[in-house]
Design a protein around this nucleic acid. Structure first.
Lengths: 245, 245
DNA sequence: AATATTTGTCTATACAAATAGACGATTCGA
DNA sequence: TCGAATCGTCTATTTGTATAGACAAATATT
């Protein structure tokens, strides 16, 4: 049971007392990351204040990135952004698991595509080479955090979409084709406004920024195997550039 | 150097931020007990706020008994009341020293007086016996805390005023006359409004309450040696009635 | 498709907080 | 004794806080 109280005339505004109560409840785990907090009306009734006063408290927490409000749905705890360290060996599932979160992922699309000049250069293939283009959605604790598009040579990994569709793991899918290890060669990072399709998948609003990572994975002998373009919800993940451990 | 800051529009009233700053400064010892804190104008300039805002902060601390304002003089840290335990052996200097404070005292008056019926009964002497009446002011850490009037048989302690005037100690003065030990027999406690003369000596305003202690000190064989009427500033000392240790 | 729920925005009102200025009351030192 | 310093009180104005009500916009439910 919840016995918190707010006091009037103390020189501390009601909205601030409510904001601090909510912040404490979230920190204590009463409302889990990504979960819903009580509605404005409920909180207002709970403390016997006007809804506008609650709204101001919530606005302060939204400004701090602690809450996120969705019109018509409710107000949610904005999960702390997941750290995404960029190293030579970067495996999404390992990164996420090491932060006590549960990663899931699924293939949202798959198509054949001919390499254009850019992709051909990146993958060191001839222009027009047939590639798999695989669309992926990565989810952490039920919250979608990034979408990625990967291009992989079709002739070298003919049944990759099937294996990836089963395992949801590039590491496993490439291993089945004889690539036991791979590492990140280069990563370029930029920021863009989210595209419509990505926004739908990530549950973001138009106009939100995304981090865009363009990376090339190579086998230990330096041969490119995969070109990936990743779009990360900037409010849910943050990049960490670290020296090699 | 002092780097504290106050922020506007945070939902915490300026007066409260200032009050908490002052409270912290006092707790940290920046302004010592009984000492002066900066003037309203200085604090207002320090934080770039209006003097009225500072006044509200100070009013809150006065209500909490932490500060005390004297018109025309300044605002002072209200010393925490000194505990004054009542036991059989009560020595002002020992009590005060044990509370990490520095006691001083001085005789403020001395006169001869004949015992009236009341004093004669208390001291077990005949009515009309010549007594010394000695007025004493006790000060702790520079702050006057009590005034006392003591009556002692003159023929038994003929040069007591001289000795007390030198030593400011009844214990020593009585010892010189052969009374090695004495203890408190009875103490009556009451509360009155302060008298004009006492108010001047204690630096209190008219209308302030004082604790009045009427006590009789006796030698180990039970013979009365001293009758004392003590007036204590109620906001600077508090009585503690304890069982004998 | 209709309805209920929930957040977003707007207007209006009342009260608290903070500012501004003036002047009185008390104390202290020159 | 005078004036400066300091706290006490008063009026007036502006800004921040909180309430009240209405309706729009998006979502979820039936």
């Amino acid at each position: 049971m919840d016995q918190a109280r707010i006091d009037r005339g103390t020189g501390i505004a009601l909205w601030r007392q409510i904001a601090e109560w909510l912040r404490a409840e979230i920190a204590a785990g009463t409302y889990e990351a990504g979960g819903r907090v009580p509605t404005e009306a409920e909180i207002a009734a709970r403390f016997e204040v006007n809804r506008h006063t609650v709204r101001r408290a919530i606005a302060a927490l939204i400004a701090d990135g602690i809450l996120r409000a969705d019109q018509g749905r409710g107000t949610f705890v904005a999960s702390a952004p997941i750290s995404y360290p960029i190293r030579r060996r970067t495996r999404f599932s390992e990164i996420v698991s090491s932060q006590d979160k549960t990663p899931t992922g699924r293939m949202t699309g798959c198509a054949e595509e001919e390499a254009d000049a850019f992709l051909a250069a990146q993958l060191e293939l001839a222009v027009g080479t047939l590639l798999w283009r695989i669309e992926t959605l990565r989810v952490v604790d039920g919250l979608p955090v990034l979408v990625a598009t990967s291009w992989i040579e079709k002739s070298r990994f003919p049944d990759l979409p099937d294996i990836y569709g089963e395992t949801n793991s590039f590491t496993l899918a490439l291993a089945r084709a004889g690539v036991d290890d791979y590492s990140r060669r280069s990563t370029r990072v930029s920021a863009e406004l989210i595209e419509r399709g990505d926004a739908l998948q990530l549950g973001l609003e138009d106009g939100q920024p995304v981090l865009v990572l363009d990376s090339v994975n190579v086998t230990p002998d330096g041969r490119p195997v995969q070109y990936t373009r990743t779009r990360m919800a900037a409010d849910r993940m943050q990049l960490v550039i670290e020296p090699e451990a």
